[in-house]
Amino acid sequence: MRMMMHFSAVVSMIVLLLGIPNSALAWGDEGHEVVCQIAYMELSPTARQRVDGLIAEDTEFREFARSCTWPDHPRQRASEHFLNVERSASKVTSGQPCGTAAKCVVTAIVNDTRDLAASPDGSDALRLLKSLGHWVGDIHQPMHVSFSDDRGGNKVSVTGPCDSNMHSVWDTCILQETIGEDAKTVAVDLRSEITQQERMDWSAGDVTLDTVLGWANESLDISRMPDVGYCVLKGDVCQYDDNRVVYEEGQQTRSVVVDEPYLQHQSERVRTRLKMAGVRLAAVLDKIFGEGDQVIAAANLRDFSLKRVVDARAAATPNVVPQLRNLALAPTVRDKQMAGVPTQDQIDALLVRVKELEAELIAMKSR
């Protein structure tokens, strides 16, 4: 594990020497795979079949989860992996969804969601699917909604087991040191923790610009928290350190102690962000992969509504064949009377069994 941490530090140094913003490498490959594996397991059967169909066309990846690392290898659409804000900003607003930049992870999600929903079977659908999975992971990594002068924590040194910088701590170190190193196993474990209430809280309703901004603001809230150690709050301003508002290139970097207590304390936040990203990505893809092939797209960013896009597509091509999962799963009145309302114990037992079956399936596929 320590060797992997040193490897990550070497990669970070190479990236910086080449002048590539390391903030393009959110969560590391494992984190992105965890998010997309959770999303894949959360998908409805119909949506999962559509995703499988697109991935089957890919010449590089055989699994959706692994395909979500694609925009990092090589780096693509560099400015759309993150969102830089002013150090005085406590919230990202619709008036400036990318701050002073023209593009960012917020617009990447909105644009790719719109384009994929508009043509889910189009020639560009595979690229959009892989990109969208990546962007949703990026926006849930707190160091990706941060400050440009310190490169999203790349210019904040750390001491301890992680032995690199603050960005790398949140990309990989917390995940690998406290949660696990195998993406599929971690995804199964994390998904088993998600409750139905959390699914509703995290992904209910339409997907709009405000929805995506909400995801960004959750990350910004975390990056500004004092116990994270990324910046130092002085009034409303989150300074680089006690004496410097911003970091200037060539200056000595500040150092934060990232020890075992820190890693354990932040572990729950990382677990939650990964679960949120997976559930939300699944909800977006479930909405996208409906019937029909013609869509009226939003006129501009603020008008975007995934529900409106999908509704327009459905209206253009009416769905006259009921979905199979509705026919198979919709209980009759007699079934409901006989079954009664399931208890929480029954639900928990089923979730445990689902986890066991998924682990068995993953093991079989890897043989």
Rank of each mutant, 00 (worst) to 15 (best):
I288W: 06
R302D: 14
I222T: 08
V258T: 07
L233E: 13
S223H: 08
L281P: 00
I296H: 14
L213A: 05
P261I: 12
R273T: 12
S223W: 12
V295D: 00
L220A: 01
D221P: 08
S255H: 03
N217E: 08
N243A: 07
T208V: 02
M276N: 05
G290T: 11
S305T: 08
L274A: 03
A283F: 08
V237G: 03
P226L: 07
S305D: 07
L281R: 00
E291N: 07
Q264L: 15
E249F: 11
D259N: 14
V279N: 02
G229C: 10
P261D: 11
L209T: 00
V258H: 10
R224S: 08
R308Y: 04
G292A: 09
Q252A: 15
N217Q: 13
V245L: 04
R280Y: 06
V257I: 13
A312V: 01
D236C: 02
R254T: 14
D311F: 03
V284S: 01
G290C: 13
Q252D: 12
L209F: 09
D227Y: 12
V246E: 13
S305Y: 07
D259K: 10
L233C: 04
W215I: 04
Q252G: 12
N217C: 12
R313L: 03
A297H: 06
M225A: 15
V246P: 04
E249L: 11
V228F: 11
V212Q: 04
M225G: 15
L209A: 10
R280A: 03
L281E: 01
L274S: 05
L281W: 00
A283Y: 00
R313F: 08
N300C: 05
R254Y: 05
A299F: 07
C238P: 03
G250R: 11
K307F: 09
F289Y: 06
F289W: 00
V258Q: 06
D221C: 01
T253I: 05
R302S: 15
V295Y: 03
D210V: 01
R224W: 13
M276W: 09
E248S: 09
V212M: 03
A298Y: 00
R244N: 15
D210H: 02
Q266W: 15
V237Q: 04
F289G: 02
Q251M: 14
A298N: 02
L209R: 01
Y230F: 07
D236M: 02
S223D: 07
D236Y: 05
F289M: 06
V258R: 08
A315E: 03
L281I: 00
D241E: 09
D236Q: 08
D286I: 00
